Amino acid sequence: MTARFNHTIIASIDAAEMAEFYRDLLEADEAPSWGPFVNVQIADGVLLQFAAPPMEFPPQHYAYLLDDAHFDRAYAKITDRGVEHWADPQRSRPGRINHEHGGRGVYLLDPSGHYLELITQPYL
């Protein structure tokens, strides 16, 4: 199998704000931007492109695999800044993390209302 994930466009109310949010939380690298896109790059050269779409957009779900130390830093930012978060995607366990799949996980919303999931172990 040779297919690898390369990039995605994430619909954004404010592309610059979204790029900064993801760059900070995911400790992502800056990347050159062009046209309507404000870009950041995460591991393996994956490009996240933030842009305002020409129409309303439904919230999407984006999950990121972090190592334990990065998860600790990200979770500290979430709690220090008072960002609402949950241990589950149904948002029934507020202010907590989960310990599923042999690791830890947390759910939160980004500035444009997309559902983020940070996990320390992959599901498979």
Rank of each mutant, 00 (worst) to 15 (best):
A69W: 00
V38F: 04
I10K: 05
L48R: 01
Q49E: 14
Q49Y: 03
E30A: 14
A15G: 08
L47V: 12
E100K: 14
A69N: 09
G35D: 08
W86L: 00
I42S: 08
H99Y: 11
E20C: 07
A87G: 06
A19K: 07
P32M: 09
Y123C: 13
D14S: 07
L66T: 03
G105Q: 02
G35V: 09
P89G: 02
L26I: 05
L124Q: 14
D88M: 03
D14K: 01
R96G: 06
L66C: 01
L109W: 11
H101A: 12
H101K: 10
Y75T: 01
Q121L: 04
G113I: 06
L109S: 11
V38S: 07
I13T: 15
H85I: 01
S112T: 05
I119N: 11
V40M: 09
A43P: 07
L66W: 04
I9E: 13
S12T: 06
G95W: 02
Y75K: 03
P59R: 13
A76R: 13
H85Y: 00
A69Q: 13
Q90E: 14
E117G: 02
L66N: 00
E56F: 10
E27C: 13
E100Q: 11
A11F: 08
E117C: 10
Q41A: 11
V106W: 03
P58K: 15
E27G: 14
G45N: 02
E27P: 07
Q90D: 11
G82N: 05
T79P: 00
P89Y: 07
H7T: 05
A52W: 09
S33M: 09
S12D: 01
H85L: 07
T120I: 05
N6H: 15
Y115E: 14
D14V: 03
S12C: 05
F5C: 06
V38N: 02
